[in-house]
Simulated scan of single mutants.
Amino acid sequence: MPLDYWIFDPSTCQFPKPRVPILPSTFDYSVSSNEKSAFPDIGFRHFSRGRYALGEAFRLAGVGQHGALLAPAYHCVTMLDPALALGAPVLLYSLKPDLMPDLHSLDQIYAESTVPVKALLATHFFGLVRDFSRLKQWADDKGIVLVEDCSHVLFTERYRACGAGLYGKFIASSPYKFFPCTDGGLLAAQDAHFLDGVKTESAGLLCELRGIKSTIEKSRLPKLSKNDLEQIDRRLDSLVFDSLKPGVDQRIERSAQSIQYSPASATTASLLSSRWLTSHSSATNNLSRRQENYRRWVTALSDVPNCHVLYPEIPAHAAPYMFPLYLNYPTPHFYWLKLLGLPVWRWDEMVVSDCAVAEDYRLHLLHLPCHQSLSEDEMGWMVAVVRKTLALPVVGVQ
């Protein structure tokens, strides 16, 4: 079934490479005995990316040509790609402003579906674990498999963020987003027998060597210095007086998965080196550094105009994946931030839906790094870039 997508093409913008790594780049070898958690009743399978773990979860749930997937309207396309690769109808449910599922929307979409709904995808956005107990009850009542998306959650074989993995029959996560790995996806199941018959293949020796090389190179990337901090005002002045070259926002229709999903990689296991890094990195330090950086963002932006923090407060046990910041005026602020080299993501390629929140957040909600590898100079530079850019007046644009 073809889907309508909004796609943002930034090719005319001439954005430079980010000046700071958006994902972890350095290895923290420190594992204490109290970090080693065992999940004896849970089964695990390793994949090269979380999207392929999701694909296997969808397949096991019965998603396909005759089985639909319910997915959140605010999404990265790789959350939907696995279902499209299976030839399945994808139905998007609405979200509330805090990105919790709208149960009324779920009821309506389920009632109107002409294809049996086989799976419901529920996402813990930005690493903040949510209470999906009502959602699980809703799915159980209708005989739908709940797939818990922990791709933004610190969830590995050894460590599970508090509250994660309690709701889904299947759980998918992306450890590489929390550790300096080349790759890494994980499929877990509440009962190990649910994964009987799930097989993956080794990536091979050459890929292992390339992965090690990539990890070493990533750890040696040049760091920012105080001199970079002093150049922000000069760069901003030049950008403000330059004519803005906005990207192209277009609407297209497609029925297949995006180029970010490779069917040839769907059954490839994660690299052994990636698994070693994940199992030998300190989850405790990871969590504490991320919380520290997240709260630094909150404090630094509390008085900044033209924006607001989506989640000003986070639980004490949270391991945030990214820092979500809402921009009042993506034009020009998003462009200026990108042109300054700020490492920032936003989900501007998204399926069109009736969800007002998804439609709004698509271009307005930024994902800023708060990972454990960030140095003091890097955090200081990013905070200064955002504060100075968003303080600039916006005239005649929306």
Rank of each mutant, 00 (worst) to 15 (best):
S353A: 08
L325Q: 06
Q372N: 13
L374C: 10
W347E: 04
A358I: 01
T331C: 09
E376F: 08
D377N: 15
P343E: 12
D354H: 08
M379A: 08
P343R: 03
D360Q: 13
V385N: 02
D377C: 13
L327F: 08
D377I: 11
V385S: 10
W347P: 00
H364C: 12
S353T: 14
F334C: 02
Y361C: 05
H367W: 11
L340G: 07
H333R: 06
G341R: 03
Y335C: 00
S373W: 00
V344Y: 02
Q372C: 10
L339M: 10
T331I: 13
V357R: 01
V383W: 01
D348C: 08
L363I: 15
Y329W: 12
V344Q: 07
L342V: 10
T331R: 05
V383T: 10
V351Y: 08
A358S: 15
Y361M: 10
L366A: 10
L337S: 08
L363A: 15
E359T: 14
M382R: 02
D354Y: 00
H333M: 01
V386I: 02
M382F: 11
K338Q: 15
A356K: 15
Q372L: 12
V383L: 13
W345L: 15
P369Y: 04
Y329P: 05
H364S: 11
S373N: 10
V351P: 04
W381C: 02
L363M: 15
L327Q: 04
Y329G: 10
L365D: 03
L342F: 04
M382G: 02
V351S: 08
K338Y: 06
P369A: 07
P324G: 03
A356F: 01
G380H: 08
V357M: 03
S373G: 09
V344W: 09
W345V: 07
P324E: 03
Y326V: 12
A356R: 14
F334K: 00
A356G: 09
Y335T: 11
R346Q: 09
A358F: 04
L368W: 01
L339N: 05
S375G: 09
Y329S: 12
E349Y: 11
V385D: 00
P324N: 05
A384M: 11
N328M: 13
L366C: 08
Y326S: 09
W345E: 14
E378C: 08
S373I: 11
M350N: 07
L340D: 04
P330Q: 12
R362Y: 07
H364I: 03
V383N: 04
L342T: 00
D354Q: 11
M382H: 05
D348P: 10
G380P: 14
L337N: 01
L374A: 10
W381T: 04
P343Y: 09
V352R: 14
C355E: 07
E376Y: 08
L325H: 00
L340T: 03
H364E: 05
E376D: 15
V351C: 05
R362W: 01
C355P: 01
G341F: 02
L368E: 06
H367V: 00
P369K: 04
F323H: 02
H364R: 15
V383K: 04
W381L: 02
D354A: 11
E359G: 13
D377V: 14
D360S: 13
F334W: 02
H333G: 06
D348M: 03
L365V: 12
L368V: 09
G341C: 04
E349Q: 14
E349G: 07
L366F: 06
R346G: 00
V352F: 14
L337P: 03
V386Y: 00
V386C: 10
A356Q: 15
